[in-house]
Amino acid sequence: MILTLAHTKGGVGKSTLAWHIAHGLKQTDKVEIVDMDFNQTLYYINRIAGSPFTVHQPRNVAELYDLISRTTHDVTLIMDIGGFDSDLNRAAIRHSDHVIIPITPDRVTEVLGFRTFDAILSELDTIDTKFHILFNNIHASTRNFDKFKKAVKGERFTILKSAIRSRKIYYSTMGNGQSVFDSIGNVSAQTEIMELIDELRRA
């Protein structure tokens, strides 16, 4: 499976989500990370963590295609692409099984940025790719997402039932090279990530 975290806007939580999803999947699957973000966040966090994952950094489309062709079916590739448009990012999206688009729905800039992303996707040949909107960094008191669903509605996308709440633990553990699965005190965050993984597996 190739799972890509994507959005044309930076700072929406792609790298953070990719890191914790990788740790959630690692409990049962072989996982490798593809870091194509300009900031190389996952590459450096992985080094801080003692390199629990193989992290690939393809520099061009040819290197990405070579990586994908060499990846065996028992490996899940998690790709974190930068918040910008490029041939490399488009190639990653085009060859993904699932693309997660994290959006904090009460941030207007992210919703508007999503519209730009949607326009880019309309130019790609993505017959087999499934696109999912994930409400991310949601305030604990938010329960009704109806107005946000209308803002991002489109034929291309499904809105995931899973949602990731705003929790300091996602960032504090990552900053130490850990994940929410490294501590027994992070049950709520662990549950959110595993519910997201389970929903993607059923999709």
Results as ranks from 00 to 15, higher is better:
36 M>W: 01
167 R>S: 02
105 P>M: 01
154 G>V: 02
48 I>M: 15
159 I>R: 14
202 R>N: 12
59 R>P: 03
49 A>C: 02
125 D>F: 10
27 Q>V: 11
162 S>A: 08
99 V>L: 03
12 V>W: 10
103 I>W: 01
192 E>N: 14
112 L>A: 13
21 I>Y: 02
177 G>I: 03
95 H>Y: 15
70 R>E: 07
131 F>G: 00
12 V>N: 01
34 V>T: 02
180 V>T: 04
194 M>Q: 13
6 A>N: 12
166 S>E: 09
90 R>H: 12
118 D>P: 05
34 V>Y: 05
182 D>E: 00
142 T>H: 13
79 M>A: 12
76 T>F: 06
110 E>H: 00
77 L>Q: 11
119 A>S: 14
147 K>L: 08
47 R>S: 06
126 T>C: 03
57 Q>T: 06
129 T>W: 14
52 P>R: 08
4 T>E: 03
147 K>D: 04
149 K>G: 13
137 N>T: 05
187 V>A: 04
91 A>S: 07
70 R>Y: 03
143 R>I: 08
129 T>Y: 15
68 I>N: 02
53 F>T: 05
105 P>H: 06
12 V>T: 02
15 S>L: 01
164 I>T: 11
201 R>Q: 08
191 T>G: 01
184 I>T: 08
82 G>D: 15
183 S>G: 03
97 D>A: 11
81 I>Q: 03
195 E>K: 06
10 G>C: 09
195 E>G: 09
67 L>Q: 09
162 S>G: 09
34 V>D: 01
30 K>L: 12
90 R>S: 00
47 R>G: 14
7 H>R: 04
179 S>C: 02
68 I>W: 07
177 G>A: 04
36 M>R: 13
115 R>W: 02
198 D>R: 14
6 A>V: 10
137 N>L: 01
163 A>P: 05
129 T>N: 11
77 L>E: 00
65 Y>L: 14
130 K>H: 08
61 V>N: 07
24 G>N: 13
70 R>Q: 05
68 I>Y: 14
87 D>M: 10
48 I>A: 07
187 V>Q: 09
60 N>H: 01
96 S>R: 06
145 F>V: 07
180 V>D: 04
74 D>I: 04
173 T>H: 11
27 Q>M: 11
43 Y>T: 13
203 A>N: 13
129 T>H: 15
80 D>Y: 03
179 S>M: 01
121 L>R: 10
131 F>L: 13
